[in-house]
């Protein structure tokens, strides 16, 4: 494919078009993915997550500048929520990153969560592959707010960073349940505000717990707006990456990740088998009515659809 050839040479416009194809999952998507897949697996993927208002975009901006100084090409994917009611989204993370736009070695893409047809994780993983294939070496995937997408990102990323700030209090309590635990590095941004000590104390509960890989989560204070703590954080990111490589975790997790990807792809394709066919969409809607009226259970309805699609 000409498009893929161009993107492999680092052509940003081609990469951008390929991303749209994968995001929209149009007819060419499978071909694009197939063509770029052999060229992926070189990049270090870093997930950044945490509550809104903690300054994630600013942190990514600061880290991107730092890795540019270290001569790494940087890809950034900024994910913001899509409205479940209108399907629209306001994607504003570029506001923070304006001055990187013209940097040859940086590619930034904003994405809506588009909470339908396969979910965020599929599209995000695919888009990361494009950035990987075009030669980006450090790829940041930043997710907004709270929700499932954070956990999804942890499955895709090699290094997961959870961003906190002083004074969040209750939010931290709520987060403890899941999101904090995915963090390989816990960042307390806006560390010039009061209450850093109590935030760190809260985090220590998580930090003390070793991950299955043997990595002990670390904390880092930053003031991203003033580039404070950014060099140390970048060092920490590299340290974690080195650990993954040396301990063999990168490889073992790679197999896990492949399994996840295959699972996601499988369910997406099963889904498409049904929804690509207009007559089956009609049948789907009939079955929805029946399930709603309790005339059929959802599992039997799914079996029936798969049968009609010629799968079961």
């Amino acid at each position: 494919m000409e498009l893929v050839e161009r993107l492999l040479r680092g052509d940003k416009r081609a990469a951008a078009k390929a991303i749209s194809i994968l995001e929209d999952y149009d007819k060419k998507a499978a071909d694009v993915l197939g063509a770029i897949y052999p060229h992926t697996g070189k990049a270090h993927i870093i997930g950044i997550t945490g509550p809104t208002g903690t300054g994630k975009s600013t942190l990514v901006f600061a880290l991107a500048k730092e890795f540019r100084k270290r001569d790494k090409k940087v890809g950034i994917i900024a994910i913001d929520p899509t409205s479940p009611f209108t399907g629209g989204a306001l994607l504003g993370d570029r506001i923070r990153m304006g001055s990187l736009t013209l940097d040859e070695g940086v590619f930034i893409r904003s994405m809506g969560t588009r909470g339908h047809a396969g979910g965020t994780s599929r599209a995000t993983a695919d888009v990361i592959k494009v950035l990987d294939a075009m030669g980006m070496q450090k790829i940041f995937a930043e997710t907004a707010g709270a929700g499932q997408s954070e956990v999804d990102i942890a499955r895709i990323a090699h290094t997961s960073i959870v961003v906190e700030m002083p004074g969040l209090g209750d939010d931290i309590q709520a987060m403890k349940a899941g999101i904090l635990e995915i963090g390989d590095i816990l960042v307390v941004n806006k560390a010039d505000l009061d209450g850093v000590d109590s935030t760190l104390a809260n985090l220590s509960l998580v930090v003390d717990r070793e991950k299955p890989s043997g990595w002990k989560p670390r904390t880092q204070l930053t003031v991203a707006t003033e580039d404070k703590g950014i060099t140390d954080l970048a060092d920490l990111i590299e340290e974690h990456y080195d650990f993954l490589k040396q301990s063999g975790t990168l490889e073992t997790e790679g197999v896990e990740r492949a399994k996840e990807e295959l699972r996601a792809a499988l369910s997406h394709h099963l889904f498409l088998r049904v929804f690509e066919r207009p007559e089956l969409i009609g049948e789907f809607n009939n079955l929805v009515q029946m399930v709603a009226k309790k005339e059929m259970d959802p599992h039997s309805a799914a079996e029936k659809l798969l049968g009609l699609a010629g799968i079961a």
Partner: peptide, 11 residues
């Protein structure tokens, strides 16, 4: 956005 468009705002 309310009309279902993905809007990227540059600031």
């Amino acid at each position: 956005r309310d009309a279902g468009v993905e809007v990227i705002y540059t600031g």
